[in-house]
Design a protein around this nucleic acid. Structure first.
Length: 463
RNA sequence: UCCCCUGUAGCUCAGUCGGUAGAGCAAGCGGCUGUUAACCGCUGGGUCGUAGGUUCGAGUCCUACCGGGGGAGCCA
């Protein structure tokens, strides 16, 4: 007999076949007519398959009648059209093998709604819930779509290092990596002697692969990274993780408008793929998580992103008539409330803001001819806020050196980065996208800790 | 890190003005049923986050700590 996934067995085309199904019991309902219904799920799709188990099976009284949520089984049976409502097919079991029971007295998952807070405390079991199954499948779909998009656009997937010895990435607090004995580190003149550490210098977990990605873009054209990223910021919000996955494309011969075009095309492709490939999971998010999610995603796919310069955005906010907690002044960074107003209330679509004041952006962003702004861009989406941050990179050696000096950075720490400008420099651009924020946006899940299998946040690294 | 809220049964929560603890779901038992968040009845289930304090008396008021949530900052 052939093994079928639940997804395949639920398909009408399976009717008439003798199959094997293996998975976990979601519920059991008994009929006093002498048989039982089992709802079985194996992760292959959102829905369960209904298995009808006749009372004539030899282990019916001894095992089947004791099955409860969470038990694991292997079922041999015949697929037929279901006479009941709610499913196209069902399986009439001829044999049921119980792999493992799940004592209902102690099994934490019940046939009811649990809070996400509680489910986080049982991260080893929460993938068995409807919501986390759906999140996991959508997250997988997003990742597949990301790779497909870049591969079809001619990008090379490059692996930038997770461990970095340069303390100069400047994108936030870093986790230090060391093999020194922290209780008694070797010392030299009162300070820790890092020449005795594993890499013979202080080293850290990466906060961005961008600078290394630029190296490959400046040799091979279009590249992207997709890997884990670490921030030791003590930020406790529904949009931040200490360990998250980031996608960073980097393109030679791309100016900022090319960068914006790519970002827009990229997001639309991913959303379109999720809508078509995860329809059943998305219907669940629409029903139980966010009643607007399908129309929101659909409108993003169909319409153009609105592009506004920072200066235009400041004017729009100033003239909006809206009262904000924080004042709007040209030259200071926009607050969350400002960004949310633009993308959720005023424009009600994704917004790309660009040409930010140079004083609030990092050294590597290209300075505009006005001398006051840089070629930065942020993509803002409803509900999540900033989902993409990127820029055209400064390719002029002298300007870059001046910018580093302006921001108090030592040129020798960046010697290799500067050499990219010294030898065959090219205009280039790129952006960074947080995978979990994208999954949040797509699913409507409000807490980022519920779109990653094992969230790491300040004070929390269980499982 | 700051501000606000919160912690009561396995889970989700109620608990009034300070007077010895409640519901729904889950579980166990029984009934009913081609059922589908099944339904009906009965039963068991509690160191009220922790430690102090006020009081004749604290789930309730006060303080500290711990956990969780929301918002802010930082960012992706």
């Amino acid at each position: 007999m052939k093994k079928f996934s639940v997804a395949n067995a639920r398909n009408r085309e399976a009717i008439g076949q003798d199959i094997v199904l293996q998975g976990w019991v979601r519920t059991r309902r008994d009929s006093k007519a002498g048989f039982s219904f089992l709802e079985l799920n194996d992760g292959s799709c959102f829905g369960n398959i209904q298995v009808v188990v006749p009372g004539s099976l030899p282990n019916y009284e001894s095992e089947i009648k004791k099955l409860s949520a969470g038990a694991s089984v292997s079922i041999e049976g015949h697929v037929k059209e279901s006479p009941g409502q709610g499913q196209a097919t069902e399986v009439e079991a001829t044999r049921v093998v119980v792999f493992g029971t799940a004592d209902p007295e102690t099994y934490p998952l019940q046939k009811k709604r649990h809070s996400y807070e509680f489910l986080r405390t049982i991260a080893h079991l929460r993938p068995r819930t409807n919501t986390f199954g759906a999140v996991t499948r959508v997250r997988n779909c997003v990742c597949r779509s990301i790779h497909r998009f870049f591969q079809e656009e001619g990008f090379l997937y490059v692996h930038t290092p997770v461990i970095t010895a340069s303390d100069c990435e400047g994108a936030g607090e870093m986790f230090q990596v060391t093999t020194l004995d922290l209780a008694d580190p070797p010392k030299q003149a009162g300070a820790v002697d890092y020449t005795q550490d594993f890499f013979e210098r202080p080293s850290f977990l990466t906060v961005s692969g961008q600078l290394e990605a630029e190296i490959f873009a400046c040799a091979l054209g279009k590249v992207y990274t997709f890997g884990p990223t670490f921030r030791a910021e003590n930020s406790n919000t529904s949009r931040h993780l200490a360990e998250f996955w980031m996608i960073e494309p980097e393109m030679a011969f791309f100016e900022l408008t090319d960068n914006m075009d790519l970002a827009e095309r990229f997001l639309k492709t991913v959303l379109r793929d999720v809508l078509t490939q995860c329809a059943e999971d998305m219907a669940f998010f629409q029903e139980r998580i966010d009643k607007q999610i399908l129309t929101t995603l659909q409108s993003v796919v169909e319409g153009d992103f609105v592009r506004l310069s920072y200066t235009e955005a400041v004017d729009m906010l100033t003239n909006s008539g809206e009262t904000f907690e924080y004042p709007i002044t040209w030259g200071s960074d926009l607050q969350s409330e400002h960004e949310r107003f633009l993308t959720e209330k005023k424009i009600k679509r994704p917004v790309i803001l660009y040409d930010y004041p140079r004083t609030i952006k990092p050294f590597y962003m290209r300075v505009n001819d006005d001398g006051k702004t840089v070629r930065a861009m942020d993509v803002l989406v409803p509900n999540v806020g900033e989902i993409i941050g990127g820029s055209q990179r400064e390719e002029r050696l002298d300007v870059l050196e001046a910018r580093m000096q302006e921001q108090g950075l030592r040129a020798q720490d960046y010697w290799w980065y500067l050499e990219l400008r010294r030898y065959g420099t090219v205009p280039h651009s790129g952006f960074g996208l947080g995978l979990e924020r994208l999954v949040q946006f797509v699913t409507g899940m409000t807490n980022i800790r519920d779109v990653i299998p094992f969230p790491r946040t300040p004070g929390s690294a269980d499982f």
